[in-house]
Amino acid sequence: MSLELIATLLGGLTIGSALMVVISKHPVRSVLYLVLTFFLISSNYILMNAQFIAIVNIIVYAGAIMVLFLFVLMLLNLNTENEPKSTLLVKVSAVIAGGLLFTVLIAALREGVVMAQPGIIDANDQGLVENLGRLLFTKYVLPFEVSSVLFIAAMVGAVLMAKREKQTVD
């Protein structure tokens, strides 16, 4: 099997499972399909020789964030009976909003992306983690640090919410 065939197969599977996230009726199933999608995305990364990103994607998204999602959904006890009924207006506006987003994405990607050759990007896999680390702390140090500030803001917000909860209980 050639790499190209594997890449096409994986890409198709990824899109298929991403579609299932949207199509699935049950939220828990949606989340599980999302986990599967993350795995498929990770395998695409591996195909592009980006093992570090692949495994970090699994640890962070599949291993932590999706577990939290699932955690919350399991507690919510969502059934078809107590599902909020969406009116026609909501449905129409959702279709319009989604369509707009889709149009913008296509417009942005149509010329911006050169169709890359799937498969090998860099044969030198030994230095991948080192290369990434070096890039993060030299060329991309500003975005990297800014994103850490974002995380601190999120954490402070979480702490604040937890604190307020406690005061009302008292």
Binding site: Q51, F52, I55, I58, G63
Partner: peptide, 19 residues
């Protein structure tokens, strides 16, 4: 070259079996 992360990753998704 990411061996230890591989182990961490599979440890972290091991919980899906239980969940």
């Amino acid at each position: 070259n990411i061996g230890i992360l591989f182990i961490m990753g599979f440890l972290s998704i091991g919980v899906y079996g239980i969940m």
